[in-house]
Amino acid sequence: MVAAVAALCVQGLATTAQAQYPEKPISIIYPWSPGQPFEVVLRKLSEEMAKELGQPVVINTVAGAGGKKSMVAAANAKPDGYTLVNNWVAPQIAGKLFDPSLPYDNNDFTPISGVMAIPFTMTVSKSHPANTMLEFIDWSKQESRTLNFGVCAPQSVPRLVGEQFMRVAGLKFNSIPNSGGCMSDNMTGLLNGSLDISVGIVPATQIMEGQLKHLVLLSDSPHPLAPDLATTKEVGLEIGWGSAVLGWGGLAAPAGTPDDVLVKLRNLVGRILQDEAFLKDLGPLRNMIDYKTPEDFQTLWTDTEVLLSPHVAVLKKGNN
């Protein structure tokens, strides 16, 4: 009798718990060190989510090891809908390709939605004689030397994309990675002449507007972040993956999260990301928003993996 009552109570609790998701704060694991525009976007999104869900949505920064720590934390989190992750291509796809022994893979995560997309560009100093990519290629032929090419972090996605472009463009280059990422070292390198050209992340390089020149967007289609910039297609140097923007980030949950929770989150996030008032509130950052349905987002994971893996292989071979 007692057992039956207890069982009933437990079941009752369980159903109310599910009916009332969320009944405690939700945390979103965020992989980068503070001060990036992505965090602002994510914070605004989490505020909107909190309004609708009636529970706080907290950003939990787990930075380190190029974002891989965040993926490990998310893969090990309880799949109950209270821990989500702002998953990025760098740790999830590129990091895993470079180091297959990492304790996570795509199957450890369930997509909620694609949230942001950051395109890459080729960038030179403002004082560089070339004003377009084709002029740059002509210039480098006259120089006839190996170019110093700044490539962000050693195992980064912009490096893979940028080196592929340099190969397609037939330029002789010497890659110069820096552990500090795309910002400071690459920019100062271009300005003081220790780099001839570098690959950049669009929102980061735009901050340096006035001191740098963007030559080409590394995609076949224009991007709202840089609508006037020539695309690879326009300069006739296609890198072979069409319009895909490989600098993506989104929201995912640990695999095994209950379906009703996923449905609720997917609908909510989808609605917010397509809401004009929300986008307006983001100001210029709205151009980073690239909503993708869970299905499209998951396809993007596998597509990216297929696109990047040969280039990771090239790089790995070069290092050994």
């Binding site: 090891a65 190029g66 470079f98 180091d99 972090a153 050693p154 195992q155 990675p177 820096n178 552990s179 290092n319």
Partner: peptide, 9 residues
């Protein structure tokens, strides 16, 4: 940690 140039562990 990670090698700053090759990214190797």
């Amino acid at each position: 940690g990670l090698d700053p140039v090759s990214g190797a562990s």
